[in-house]
Amino acid sequence: MNFLTSYIHYVGCFALVLIGLYVALVKSNLIKVIIGINLIDTGVNLFLVATGYLGGGTAPIFSKAAEQSQEMVDPVPQALVLTAIVIGVSVLALALALAIKVYDHNGTLDLRKLKGLKW
């Protein structure tokens, strides 16, 4: 129980990654597979932000009310996640464009019915 209360954010983000992996592996609809990949992306982003967290820390933004710099969370993972979110959005858009193209070409988004994927 003590483990869960102190590590709940790590448990949550790995659960998110595993759920995303399960969705990407099991679902046969292409849109759902893309949603699963996006869930993995979200879980990894959450993990990166959680590594920079300090107990009781505030957001790394100075204001006239909070000028002390001791209790701020680490800004570097947040900046990296800002990058990762934008890249995730562009990958998602490209994947959806390819899904549109697949639908135009085959008339279905069901991966089991796509003949070109079988060997």
């Binding site: 790394p60 933004i61 100075f62 710099s69 701020m72 800004p75 993972p77 947040q78 900046a79 800002l82």
Partner: peptide
């Protein structure tokens, strides 16, 4: 991270460290 938080305000005069 600690270095940016403690010195960033003086170096860039930018309130948002991110």
């Amino acid at each position: 991270g600690r270095r940016y938080v403690s010195k960033g305000l003086d170096e860039n005069r930018c309130a948002n460290i991110v």
